[in-house]
Structure formats: C-alpha cells, structure tokens
Amino acid sequence: MMINDRLKEAIKEYKDELTVLRRKLHSEPEVSWEEYRTTDFVCEYLDQLGVSYRRTEPTGVIAEIKGGKPGKTVALRGDMDALSVEELNKDLPYASNEDGKMHACGHDAHTAMLMVAAKALNEIKDELPGNVRLLFQPAEEVAEGAKALVKQGAVEGVDNVFGIHIWSQMPTHKVSCTPGPSFASADLFKVTFKGRGGHGAIPQDCIDTAIVASSFVMNVQSVVSRTIDPQQGAVLTVGKMVVGTRFNVIAENAVIEGTVRCFDPATRDHIETQLTHYAESVAAVYGAAANVEYTRGTQAVINDEESTLLVQQVASEAFGEDVIYNEKPTMGGEDFSFYLDEVPGSFALVGSGNPDKDTEWAHHHGKFNIDEDALVTGAELYAQYAWAFLNK
C-alpha cells in the first residue's frame, strides 16, 4: 500500500479517537499562557506514541518525529489556547466546564488534529525522508505564543512550516490556501487626551476632552478613506472610549483604544504615522494634549507561493479537486506570521461550517462550534502535507 493510502486509512481508523480528543479539550478550556493541563495532556499522548518532545516555557510543546532516512525538516503547527468567552452551547455533552472560558475559535480542533496526525506519521517514520516537527503552541489569541516558540528554537533547522485553521465560514471539508496575503497584520492603539476639567456649568474655564475624543473618533476614519490607496485593504476600528467621571463634570481625561488591520507593510507604517498626526492635531485645535501608544501585534500572514501550490496539490490528490475553495483574505490576525518571518510556509483553512449542525457561527461567538467531520480532513491534510514536502 502506498504511504499516502496508509496515512489516509490511519486517519480514518482514528476518527472516533480524534473526536474524543477534541471533545475533552473543548470541555477543559484554558486561556493564553494558562494551558498547563492541555500541555500535560499532549505530553502524555506523545509518551504513549514514543515521540520525543520538550516542554516550552511556560506552556506548549515542541516534538519531533525522526525519519528513518535523511532529509529536510517540516514543522506542523497547532495552537491550543481558548478564549475568555462564555459557552452558550450549554446542551452539548462536551460543553465547557469552566465559567467564562471557551474554545470559541477552534484551537481544540487544531490540537486534536495535530495529535492524530502525529500518530499516523509516527507509524510510517521509518519511511520518512526527513523529520516532522510538531509545534503545540500556546497563546495565539494574545499574539505572543508563536514569537515565544520561535525564541525557544521552534524553527531552528526547519525548512518549511505549515499550519491549519478550522473555518466556520467555509463548508465542511473544503480547503482554502492561496498565495499571498491570508490574514492581516493586527495592531493596537491607545490614545490619551489630557484637557482641563471643571464644573459642567462653567465650560469657558475648561478644556473638554469629551469633545476632543469625539472629534478624533469622527475624523480618524479619513486616515483610511482619504490618505491610502483604495486598493490597499485596511480597517481602523475604535473599540473603546472612556471619558469623564460624572454627569455634571467636564472631562479632564479621555482614553480611546482600537485596532488597525492591513496587509501591506508600507500601509501599516503610514496608518501608524497618520493616527499620531490626527491625535496631536485634534488635541491642538482644542488646546489639549495627546499621547499615542501604538503596539504592533501580528504580522500579515503571507503564504509562500511554492508551499501554497503544494497544499493545493496535496488536498486535491487526497480529497478530490472539488475540495479546493477560494476564501478571500481576512482582516483577522494570526500569529502564525512569526514563523513565516523565519522560514517559508503556508497557512490553510479547513471548512467546518454546516447549517444542518448549526456550525456556521462566527469565530469568538459563544455559540461557536465545529462540524466534527472536518477533523479528519484537517488531520489528514497535516499528515499528507508533511509527507509530500519531505518527498519533494
């Protein structure tokens, strides 16, 4: 039997186990940098397989399947952290047992898929012309985990890296992986305005930061609409504004927080510069002061063309040509970008949306769930990609 067929049959055989693993992870969610039980669970599984690994600090696992023949090294990444979201699917037998915590993005599926892919690959390790590194990554949701694993040697000696994200906006089993931008860079900003407070009945003696902040919020959108090329996708969102302390006191301080998303590095630089310029200019008009804190989060995920074409080839051969789906780039952020800063690779989406199973809810929603039939697709795609890359 061909190796590809052996991998396919193994993943099918482990379908029930794959579901059990995912459900256990789903019922025991841990948020970023708190994935201690999840790390232990992965390590215990790898121990059973006889796969060598090391724990990363403070959570996470880097494992390696040593091939029986010399060759390259390919890394497969699955993230593990949950979100501070209340599970609304209370009737599920595997619903979260942690109040205010939930796997609302599919990372439980990613971890389970990578565990079972490791099991299948480990069974053919003597045939592997190279090595498969397994990255069980913490803290993706705070955009810190990938960077931390890179610092701890995750991609040292790695020739290529591949990741998967379950995607509820795509039909179950479909696979999307296109060259170029996939996920946007995701930055945070915080603008603090300082004015002069006072009695609400005596505005002439004050500098009202409620007015300053409101003017900024209303005008800052023109950074995107009037200062960048309309063909360069970008979004600037103000998500939080805290102004004032009491109904009859003119606000002395105002704090605004938001996010910037785009795909192009030059556009990113421009928006950061313009946002500061707008804040300082609006403050100057009213005689206030402005302080801008701009924090760069994830880079844009830019899929390497050669790796992406290999994903498409692997998916077509494993599941048929009609499995390929062309999902548009998303303004969502993904810290997988930090691996791509170091080595070539690609990031694929595997559909899990099924209206009959009520699994089309948006990621990060309290009713988010996945069609578990997609688990087999994801696990096999991990394994088949590793085999294909090492045999290139």
Rank of each mutant, 00 (worst) to 15 (best):
I3Y: 08
I3S: 14
N4A: 15
L7I: 07
L18S: 04
R22S: 14
K24L: 14
E35L: 14
E35P: 05
R37Y: 14
C43Y: 07
C43D: 08
E44M: 11
L46M: 09
L49T: 14
Y53G: 14
P58T: 11
I65A: 14
V74G: 01
A75L: 15
D79V: 14
D81W: 08
E87W: 08
L88G: 11
N89I: 13
K90G: 09
A95V: 11
A95M: 10
S96Q: 08
D99T: 15
A104Q: 10
A104F: 03
H107V: 12
T111R: 01
L114A: 01
M115C: 07
A117V: 10
K119C: 05
A120F: 12
N122H: 15
G130I: 13
G130F: 13
V132I: 10
R133P: 11
R133S: 10
L134K: 11
Q137R: 04
Q137W: 07
E141P: 06
E144K: 08
V150S: 04
K151A: 13
V158D: 09
D159P: 00
N160G: 06
F162R: 02
I164P: 11
I166Q: 11
S168K: 00
H173C: 09
K174L: 12
K174R: 04
A184L: 11
A184K: 01
A184N: 12
F189V: 06
V191Y: 12
F193T: 02
K194D: 03
G197K: 04
G198E: 00
H199A: 03
D205M: 04
C206A: 06
V217A: 03
Q221N: 10
D229Q: 02
Q232G: 15
A234E: 04
A234T: 04
V235Y: 03
V235L: 01
G239M: 00
K240P: 00
T245S: 12
V249E: 00
I250C: 00
A254F: 03
T259A: 02
R261N: 08
R261V: 06
D264Y: 07
R268D: 02
D269F: 09
I271F: 12
Q274L: 06
T276P: 15
T276F: 12
T276Q: 15
V282Y: 00
A283K: 00
Y286L: 05
Y286W: 01
Y286M: 07
G287C: 05
G287H: 02
A290T: 00
N291E: 13
V292H: 02
Y294Q: 04
A300G: 04
I302D: 04
E305M: 01
E306K: 01
Q313A: 08
V314A: 08
A315K: 04
S316E: 03
V323M: 02
I324A: 05
Y325S: 10
N326W: 03
M331G: 06
G333C: 09
D335E: 02
Y339P: 02
G345E: 10
S346Q: 02
S346D: 01
G351E: 01
G351T: 05
G351V: 02
G353P: 00
N354C: 04
D356R: 06
D358L: 03
D358T: 06
E360H: 09
E360L: 06
H363R: 05
H364P: 01
G366H: 05
G366T: 12
N369H: 04
N369K: 06
D371G: 01
D371K: 06
A374N: 11
V376E: 15
V376I: 11
L381V: 08
L381I: 09
Q384I: 15
Y385A: 02
A388Q: 11
